[in-house]
Write a protein that binds this DNA or RNA. Structure first.
Lengths: 162, 162
DNA sequence: AAGATAGTCAAGCATGGTTGACCAAATAGT
DNA sequence: ACTATTTGGTCAACCATGCTTGACTATCTT
């Protein structure tokens, strides 16, 4: 194989965006647009890092340390996010009755429903619009495949020998 | 519907990680692990931002301004990335014969093959390993669905017009 | 009393950008 | 031909995001 052929072949390989790049771009765009919507609707400076906290907060409330552990981050980092969410009145910190040191992070309530509800509705609406354009089954399949991919990526020493 | 029921329903909705979050996490993990491999193998401080440049560099070389336009970034930002890639001897800047102001950014060559080749091989190998665990057809389907998603997200109808 | 644990405060850092000022070469207007 | 403007690129400063580590207080456990 000549030098030129090697170059051409490599060039084609490179041109076909890798899975990682497509993933990255899709994730960035999706998040940007979703966050834009939430911001436009709720007037709150909600950023991706904030939304990452939500799935880890139990309805009864969750301790900061537990959140940090679940998210695989330092408690200081989570503390900052929670602090910002508190300022937006999305979550609140209440003392943990079972431990004087601890506080429970939980969603604020207003008019008898969680404050988060509106913002969440926007996200669900956005996903619904995507489903409309792509087909619900494609979105579901995508979700399932991403989840499978996550399982592999998160498996201890599945691929990366550390 | 009672307050409690509303809360429960919302809670379930929130708990099922949104597409965006799954996407984000998968993208982050995949990129981290891929970059780790490239770094381990090539001893170069290649970061995700760098790899994002590659698909936009033509084999003959491409001007910085063109790169910036293609990537939707400022030329200064691209200039920095290219500068770093130049220091790693991955790309080089050569004067554009057709314009005295311009320079062409192109891949370096060494031993008659592009320097990038090794790093690229690592990425391809990584994707192959993933395919082995998930099944090639799943990876391909994922790629296709992400591409379709990108098309929708990038459609001019989207609110973020640049 | 001696840790361990929950949380906070403060500082700092890496990444990945941005904007503004500027220079030199190219091109257009007259 | 010769300004005037546009264009390609660089330098420098700055910014937002999303973390980290270190030091510290209050409380709980043993």
């Amino acid at each position: 194989m000549t030098v030129d052929e090697v170059q051409k072949e490599e060039f084609e390989l490179r041109k076909r965006s890798s899975l990682g790049q497509v993933l990255m771009k899709a994730a960035r765009l999706l998040n940007e647009q979703a966050i834009d919507r939430v911001r436009a609707r709720t007037e709150q400076d909600l950023r991706p890092a904030h939304t990452a906290v939500f799935p880890h907060i139990d309805l009864e409330g969750t301790r900061l340390t537990v959140l940090a552990a679940r998210m695989g981050m330092s408690k200081q980092a989570v503390g900052q996010l929670v602090g910002e969410l508190e300022a937006m009145e999305v979550v609140e910190r209440v003392p943990d009755p079972s431990d004087g040191r601890a506080k429970l992070v939980r969603f604020c309530q207003r008019d008898g429903k969680l404050v988060l509800f509106e913002g969440l509705a926007v996200l669900i609406e956005f996903e619904a619009e995507l489903a409309e354009q792509l087909g619900r089954e494609r979105i579901d399949a995508l979700h399932a495949q991403l989840t499978a991919l996550l399982d592999v990526l998160e498996a201890p020493q599945s691929l990366t020998k550390k």
